[in-house]
Structures are given as structure tokens and as C-alpha cells.
Nucleic acid binder design. Structure first.
Lengths: 120, 120
DNA sequence: ATAAAGTATTTACTATGCTCTATACTTTGT
DNA sequence: ACAAAGTATAGAGCATAGTAAATACTTTAT
């Protein structure tokens, strides 16, 4: 599929997709049979990658961090101990963030209660 | 307490605290008895506010959003229905993000497994 | 054939959230 | 008294993550 279809399937803008491609997070391939253009073709793996990017962005990971995740998940042949440590640290980070989430959610719920009680 | 102490108690840099103060998220008061300077004094409420800011930043809320949270929690006298809706939407946002968190954590755990199995 | 739409590339621009520098004044320690 | 440290203000600079504009070429639809 070409970038337009990819954009529609993922909900990401064409600009953003190209931005990610420039960062090396995804890679489209030009059809070697077609010499007249260098249109890039994307496949299911690209969609998977973009979905991971979107999820991890929501979690607050930077694109640089996400790039490492993608490499380890899809490309990495060798298993470096520092990579393992990195991801174990990230898992702990997520657990910590979960706590912040619960606290913030709690505060927001209290604010909602407050607003509703003021109405009485 | 002065800004230096506030910085130490919260772990935020003096620069960052001043940045938040310029945005109107916290407010220090100058001692009216002292005319020679305009050093600002901060109290426990400021610490509470900064802690909320830090939590909500972790959750991914923008400073503009957090400012609204602070206003509704500490200052707001009137209870606007649109404010209630805003916060209810934010709670849903958090719930959604929680799901992304679990998915991303899951992926990271799989990557860790993969790395460890490659080692065998 | 040709206009409209799609694609690629490069470059510039923007928003957010800091972070740092420069300057000037005040307080504190000795 | 005087150096060192603290405070305030204004403005510059920076990193991240986009977003948009300009240009040129290609494909598609009529």
C-alpha cells in the first residue's frame, strides 16, 4: 500500500508518517519493477510498527526510546544485556506511572464530586 | 519559605518553579512588612500544587490542562457544567491511557523474554 | 491531452516545556 | 566592610514532536 492508504489505516497524517520514516522507525520499499517513480510501499509490518509507536507515545515514551523498542522487537538478532536492563527499567517506569495515574484520576474524581456537590 | 527551600522540598529546579509561577500555576507572596526586597514566600499549598503538577505531567497532561485542574480544585467558587464535562472526559482519557500502558508493558515484557531466551 | 490528485524531498515554521544567561539588587556570613 | 550566596526579571536558547509550504515529478480520471 502507498502512504495515503497507510495514513488512512493508521489515522496518522502523511506528514507524521514521513517524519517517522525519516527517523528510521519505519521503512517503505520502492517497487523495483517500476522505474518511473520512487513511490514507497508499506506492508502490515509497518502498520504494526505504527501501532506500537502510537501506544508507546501515549505512555510518554520518546520517539528515540520507541525506536529502540522497535529494533529490539523486530530486528535485533543479538541480545545485549544492557538492552534487557533498559527494558526492565522501562517496565518499572510504567509501574510508577500507573501510580501517578491512579492519583491523578482520584483527584479528578474528587474535583467532579466537588463540582456536583456545589450544585446542590 | 523562599524559592530555594521550595526547590529542595519539591525537587523541581528554581527555574522550573519560576516558569510555573509565570504561567500562573502557583503564586508566591511578598512579605508586606519587608520593603527592601520583593522576595516571594511560598507555603504548603504551593507544595501541594507542585506535587499535583508533577503527577499530572507524568500522566501526560499539558501545563494548560493542569492549570485548569488546579483552578477547579483550589480556587473555583462556581461550578460550571462544562468544567465537569471536561474533567469527566479527562478521567476517560486516563482510563484509555491505562489500556495503552498495559499493552506497552506487555510488549516490553515479551521483548525481555525474547532477549532472555536468545541467551540460551 | 490535460487537469486533478498523489508522491517525494527539502526546508522552514510552530508549540510545548523547559533551561540558561545576563543583569541588578538584597541578604548573609566573617 | 566586603565577598559570597540568594533572589527577581527579562530574554535567549534548546530539544522534542510535529506541521506546513514550496517545488517537482508521476499517476489517474475524464
Amino acid at each position: 500500500m502507498l502512504i495515503n492508504e497507510l495514513s488512512k489505516k493508521t489515522g496518522l497524517s502523511i506528514h507524521t508518517i514521513r517524519y517517522y520514516e525519516n527517523l528510521g522507525m519505519i521503512k517503505g520499499l520502492t517497487d523495483e519493477n517500476v522505474k518511473s517513480n520512487n513511490y514507497k510501499h508499506y506492508d502490515g509490518n509497518t502498520i504494526e510498527r505504527l501501532e506500537i509507536i502510537m501506544e508507546a507515545r501515549e505512555v510518554g515514551f520518546s520517539l528515540a526510546e520507541i525506536k529502540k523498542i522497535l529494533t529490539s522487537w523486530f530486528e535485533s538478532t543479538e541480545s545485549k544485556p544492557e538492552t534487557l536492563e533498559l527494558f526492565q527499567a522501562k517496565i518499572k517506569e510504567i509501574d510508577n506511572k500507573m501510580r501517578y495515574f491512579k492519583q491523578t484520576k482520584n483527584l479528578l474524581e474528587k474535583i467532579c464530586d466537588k463540582i456536583q456537590n456545589d450544585d446542590l
